[in-house]
Amino acid sequence: MNKIMISPSRYVQGADAIADLGKHVAPLGTKALVLGGKRGLGAIENLLSASLKEQQMDYTIEYFGGECSRPEIDRIVSVIKQNNLNIIIGVGGGKALDTAKAAAYTAKIPVAIVPTIATTDAPCSALSVIYTPEGVFDSYLVLPKNPDLVLVDTAIIAQAPARLFVSGMGDALATWFEADACAKAFAGNLPGGLSTAAALCLAKLCYDILMEYGFRAKLALEQGVATEAVEKVVEANTLLSGLGFESSGLAAAHAVHNGFTVLEETHQAYHGEKVSFGTLVQLVLENRTTAEIEKVLSFCKSVGLPITLKQIGISEVTPDKIRKVAEATCAPGETIYNQPFSVNATSVYAAILAADAIGRAYLKQD
């Protein structure tokens, strides 16, 4: 199997970068569909409009329906065709951006991505996570290429709720551990090859940045400012995690997240928050050292990421609930089979309960 690494065509990051959006988008198309939620678009609509008008670009605004589902993707494609649009600009969080990528792929037009929160690694990836209209995980849609442009304005990111930023760190936290598992298992990555040394280094750099700057970045975000620590963690959450996961692969942490979506009480937890707990489950499955696990626990506690089932919404833990999660985690085709050892619902069930016990014990140490 060949080694393959993929990435966005262009990545732009910095305070007030939105002012240059029109300049970067203009070579890609002339009539844009701007897709985003009301909150995400509301945060940047005036700046976005001014930048596009400066380049004399026509655009139509369409509000995102709330779930990256097949009906929502089809609806957006219909809007594109009805208005003869030739580029889509996705604005907002992970689900809106995944919908924009999937709709662009279906309509065969370029896509530019403008995240307003650094909450997932969705912006850079050639992947859309598809859910049912009710919010239950459905499938992964692997796209033939990454976004044509990813533009991240860190001044805008700094105005978003800190919890969203922290959730992005939870998603990024899994990157190195999943990449490491896939490399040990010689598992295929998202573009269908093996990981390059460069992709593994980016995944490890993502982890190192979180450990060094994550807590300081969170404190800065709580004050609504973008320090150099914030810049580094935004890059880790967005670019390094995105490149690391898709060019190295996913493993147990994200599969456990997908398993948790079968429990409605976890829907109030963000993607990265559930992935964070999934990372702890993966470390238990791998029987990592106490030092490695405690380093992750310490980091999660410092920034406010969940390390117990209760913290992701499961206040009443029952065997039946956890078995359902374990079985969904081990569904055919799930990424948990990229672990370098045999896994099944029984071992995942045990690891979830053990991870919860470890998290609860750690919190009691204070």
Rank of each mutant, 00 (worst) to 15 (best):
D121P: 14
N46Y: 03
A253G: 09
G304Q: 07
A179P: 02
K108R: 08
L205K: 06
T196P: 14
E264L: 09
C124S: 04
A17E: 06
A183V: 08
E72C: 12
F137L: 10
A198N: 06
N258L: 04
A229N: 06
G224H: 08
P144R: 13
V77D: 00
T132H: 02
V348L: 10
C182S: 07
Y63A: 07
V91P: 08
P161E: 07
L263E: 08
L297M: 12
E222H: 09
I6K: 04
P340K: 03
A345Y: 05
L239H: 05
M169Q: 06
G259R: 13
A185G: 15
L353C: 10
S298A: 12
D20A: 14
L28Y: 07
A220M: 08
R75G: 12
L47D: 11
I80L: 15
T238A: 09
V303D: 00
K301N: 11
V348K: 11
Q55R: 01
H271S: 01
P110F: 07
R323Q: 11
E265G: 11
A252Y: 00
G333L: 10
P306A: 05
K274Q: 00
I73A: 03
T346H: 15
G66H: 04
V234N: 01
A361N: 15
N86H: 12
E294G: 11
F186P: 00
A162R: 09
K38N: 07
S195P: 14
Y362C: 09
T308R: 10
L33T: 01
S167L: 03
L353T: 14
Q282N: 08
V256F: 14
P110K: 03
Y362G: 11
K31T: 10
L151C: 06
S195N: 10
F341Q: 15
S342R: 05
A345P: 11
V296A: 07
N344C: 12
L97E: 12
T318H: 14
T279C: 00
Y140E: 06
I87K: 01
L190D: 08
A50P: 02
A122S: 13
Q365E: 10
T261A: 08
G40V: 00
D320F: 15
M57T: 06
L85C: 14
I117S: 08
L297R: 05
G188Q: 10
Q13H: 09
G359D: 04
S347V: 12
V142Y: 05
T99W: 05
R216K: 14
E228F: 12
Q268T: 02
Y63H: 10
V348Q: 01
K204L: 12
R70G: 01
A187Y: 04
S78E: 13
A198H: 08
P144Q: 13
A255F: 04
K184V: 02
R323L: 10
A100M: 05
P27R: 05
I322P: 04
A172M: 09
S7D: 00
K310C: 12
A331P: 15
I113V: 15
P144C: 12
G259F: 13
L194Y: 01
T290Y: 09
S347D: 02
I336A: 00
H254I: 14
E228Y: 12
T116W: 01
A118R: 07
N146F: 06
S298P: 06
P319N: 10
A251I: 02
